[in-house]
Simulated assay, not measured.
Amino acid sequence: MSTAPALEDLTPPGADFATDPHSLYAHLREQGPVHRIRTPDGRDAWLVVGHAEARAALTDPRLSNDIRNSADWDGDGGYAIGLNMLQTDPPDHTRLRRLVAKEFSPQRIAAMRPRIERIADELLDALLPAGRADLVEDYALPLPLTVICELLGVPATDRAAFRDWSNEMVHPSSPEAAAAAAEAMTGYLGALIEAKRSTPEDDLLSALARSDGDALSPAELLGMAFVLLVAGHETTVNLISSGAHALLRHPDQLAALRADWSLLDGAIEEVLRYDCPVERATYRFTTEPVDFGGTTVPAREAVIVVLAAAARDPRQFADPDTFDIRRDARGHLAFGHGVHHCIGAPLARMEASIALKALLQRCPDLAFDCDPARLTWRPSLALRGLLALPVRYTATGA
């Protein structure tokens, strides 16, 4: 029987962990950078909440992403499909990452800018006449979903179903529903891969399906398609919507940005720090006892590196609970660190930059269409994002 406290047991009285996880993380950091906790499914894990300790954990070779290095998590990969980069270690991880790295080079990303700008404008063209919208469902979601599906070659007619499966797997309504979504997505991706192999097109999935030399095994190809499609849009949805939310909640910062668009890149970094779209990194497992900040984690135990907690560590960022787009936010860990640093980070940054600038320019009086205090955040320790973000506006034709 587990003796570690659950997160809900540690949450300060009256606090809502989904709405404000940072109060709990601050409370834990005051006591130390590493804590043993019970996960929602009843297993023990070690929570890393300090910035220095999180950075060290993400690069420590004694922490493995391979679930086979765990004591009691064997065979439990959650609802991941196939064998993917997030759950492998070098040298397999190195080989898998190299196969797609060229698709996310600075040159390839820059070449995608005109298409992403067109997608943003087309979405806004459709939204603006109504004068109000849900920025999550109507804008922040379809933009990165369209981009990643076009990049990999997912037909437009299949994207709604794919989105439903992805959402269920990332934010399960029940174990049964999540398992059913995983099964449906596995079948769909398997069929799509076979179609790309027999009739290749000019897309990334076709290139991976027909690759020679470092050819992917069937499980690796399935895992690659899964992680690129799901991770390629879920986090960016949260980044765009959380960025709009943070700016609307801080009118002085919004005014400063509108007055000086050279602040945009810094604003994106501050959003990443202030409301990390990925709350925690994927599970790591100790292959031997490891010391973090004076706490020894035994071998074969699960470690949860909380990126959102590291981003609010006052030892790294002064006045960390203040949203300041002029801050030097470099050093945040929102995209991870080390060999597992998010390969799509440059694409996510560009998508968010394009999406927010287009939105704010074309909607000069953008405002909440609800009480912002009543907005609902996803009840997840993995990803942090709003379920909906109702806004109103008077559109311009720009």
Rank of each mutant, 00 (worst) to 15 (best):
A56H: 13
N84G: 11
L123P: 04
G153L: 06
R68W: 04
V100T: 12
L257E: 08
L145R: 02
A215W: 06
H22G: 10
D260F: 01
R62D: 08
T199S: 15
A126R: 14
T236V: 14
E270C: 04
I354N: 10
L360H: 02
A348M: 10
A26L: 08
T146P: 07
L257A: 04
R312F: 06
L208H: 05
S2E: 14
R349I: 11
D275W: 07
G42K: 06
G131N: 07
D60G: 07
R197G: 00
L221Q: 08
D319Y: 03
R115N: 12
I81K: 10
H233G: 01
E117M: 04
D365E: 11
D214E: 14
S70Y: 01
P155D: 00
R95T: 03
D291N: 11
V136Q: 13
A231Q: 14
A329W: 04
R327H: 06
D158W: 01
A207M: 12
V303D: 10
H171Q: 15
P91W: 08
L248F: 05
G42D: 09
E183K: 09
G14A: 06
P114T: 05
I240G: 08
P379H: 09
Y393L: 06
T19D: 15
A219K: 14
W73Q: 11
P13L: 05
T39K: 05
L347Y: 04
A18Q: 08
R284M: 00
Y25G: 05
L387R: 15
V339T: 13
D313S: 04
E270G: 02
A56Q: 14
R36L: 07
K102G: 13
M112A: 15
R273G: 07
A57R: 11
V306S: 13
L127M: 15
A256E: 07
A334C: 11
E150V: 06
R29K: 10
C370Q: 09
L228Y: 12
T282A: 15
P175F: 01
A71K: 08
R280W: 00
A358T: 10
R210Q: 13
P218H: 04
L24F: 09
S23T: 10
D66T: 02
E301N: 02
D203P: 09
N65P: 03
V306A: 09
D16F: 05
S380K: 06
G266W: 09
I354G: 09
L141I: 02
S2W: 07
P5G: 03
P90D: 14
D252V: 02
S70K: 00
N238D: 14
S23M: 01
M224T: 15
D291T: 12
T236Y: 08
P364Y: 01
I240K: 08
A130T: 13
G75Q: 09
R392L: 06
S70P: 00
G232D: 14
A215Q: 13
H93Q: 05
I343D: 13
A219T: 12
A126H: 11
L247R: 04
R326F: 00
L228Q: 11
T94K: 07
R98I: 00
R210F: 01
Y274Q: 09
A308C: 00
S105Q: 12
V305M: 00
A195L: 11
D92S: 11
R374F: 02
L145V: 07
L228D: 14
T376C: 12
